[in-house]
Amino acid sequence: MAAIDTTGLTKRYGQLTAVDDLDLTVEEGEVFGFLGPNGAGKSTTINMLLDFARPTAGSATVLGYDIRDEADAISPRVGVLPEGFDIYPRLSGRRHIEFAIETKAADDDPAVLLDRVGLSAEDAARPAGDYSKGMRQRLATGMALVGDPDLLIMDEPSSGLDPHGIREMQELVRTEAERGTTVFFSSHILEHVEAVCDRVGVLNEGALVAVDTIEGLRESIGGGATMELTLADSADPGADVVDSIAGVSGVTASGRTLECTITDPAAKAGVVTALDDAGVTIRDMRIEDVSLESLFTTLTNGEGQTETETGSARETATASAMESEVAE
């Protein structure tokens, strides 16, 4: 049984299509990162899964329960950190946790949960209205953890957190995943997802543009580097030499500059050695790692209609990596 399974899930607001025919499966036990720029439809999707908003078309199940007909069976088994939430300003942090425990009929110790999310006993005794954004986020995370949920749904969990808080949040996601909890979380920042996710889905303009493992995505952008070599003479002879090296997927020569797209990190040394053997003098060399960020940017930039198929994703990623090189 999939933890989350959507079929043709669609949400339209008048003319605007916020989520467009979404087919997404999140397997039990995995940490799934739901990526996309602001306004891509991540929150709308999550809101539909939680029955905050109703689909225009399509259907979905969470932990095997239909999101519309069996919503009441879902919420006791799920921990939710919603986006754009607020706390009850007059109630203490501890009371918030206690309330979550009451509703879930759980036997958690509020002190333990508060400690897990990094709220001290003094903080917990204060009205939550005095809390900073980060503390509110921590409190809501604590509420989500009540009752050891089978599935954690977190919408932009890193918003309002400082780098330290983000690391703690990632640590928490890892711990939960080790306990067997499925974690589904959204973010518009790739690096927050990269560190903890088994798989990511990239959403753009309401449609999934890629679903893959982090490694898969890395592969699809080709080992992750470009080499730029400045030679003593025309680069054209060098291009022929380098082109035959395994692990180099593309070479372009312009003037005295040779640009190689590397798919296997070990090929970098091979490039240098081969050129040297061929009597080509290397004046300078620059290596640029292609980050997932650039893939993400490509997938979610303007045109956005990139196929999910790996081949074309590779091309676009490489192309964008080159563009950014040129820009520098």
Binding site: D51, D72, S75, L81, G84, M143
Partner: peptide, 14 residues
């Protein structure tokens, strides 16, 4: 308006 209803409805109460 404040958004606390999301916290509330994210818990078992419907």
């Amino acid at each position: 308006r404040s958004g606390s209803i999301k916290l509330l409805l994210g818990l078992p109460p419907n």
